[in-house]
């Protein structure tokens, strides 16, 4: 006969294992393994979220004169909403202005802070040492966004 000091702790371990399996069957979402190692329904959840971005084309419908300036400049690959923020709300209701109108230098630093990982031909400066008390736009013309002083 198996002594109690063997089957009792082993019984507790077995009970923990069974509880684990029970908890698992309860907590694993029904669609979890549907497409892979994630909840299948999450695709529908993500797809159902409201669209935020309008796209450059929608901006150009009205702002073709402004839009064309950066289009021919060095910022031509940068979409309007990269700096002005998601603007579908503005497209649908023009009185609702885009969320961002960046003018401070931290904004420029996002792309132009010196970083060895960036291509050498890419314009970059150490912002903290580059006219530290002046805003970028004072010298770099904000209309063309490319002009060098």
């Amino acid at each position: 006969m198996i002594p109690p000091q063997i089957w009792r702790p082993l019984g507790i371990l077995l009970a923990i294992l069974l509880i684990y399996l029970g908890v698992r069957s309860f907590f694993v979402p029904a669609t979890f393994y549907q497409y892979g190692h994630f909840r299948g329904n999450s695709l529908a959840t993500i797809a159902s979220r409201p669209v935020q971005y309008a796209g450059k084309k929608a901006c150009m419908d009205c702002h073709d004169t402004i839009g064309e300036k950066p289009y021919h400049s060095k910022h031509k690959t940068v979409s309007c909403e990269t700096c002005h923020g998601p603007s579908l709300g503005h497209v649908e209701d023009p009185s609702q202005l885009p969320s961002l109108k960046p003018t401070n230098k931290e904004w420029c630093a996002r792309c132009h802070e010196a970083n060895n990982a960036r291509p050498k031909t890419f314009p970059q400066v150490v912002i903290a040492r580059h006219y530290p008390d002046k805003d970028c736009m004072i010298c770099h013309n904000s209309k063309k966004l490319e002009k060098k002083p």
Binding site: N104, E106, W107
Partner: peptide, 13 residues
């Protein structure tokens, strides 16, 4: 809204 730039990263650079 100000862009979120981590000062520690600017320093690390």
């Amino acid at each position: 809204m100000a862009p979120n730039i981590n000062p520690a990263m600017m320093e690390a650079l």
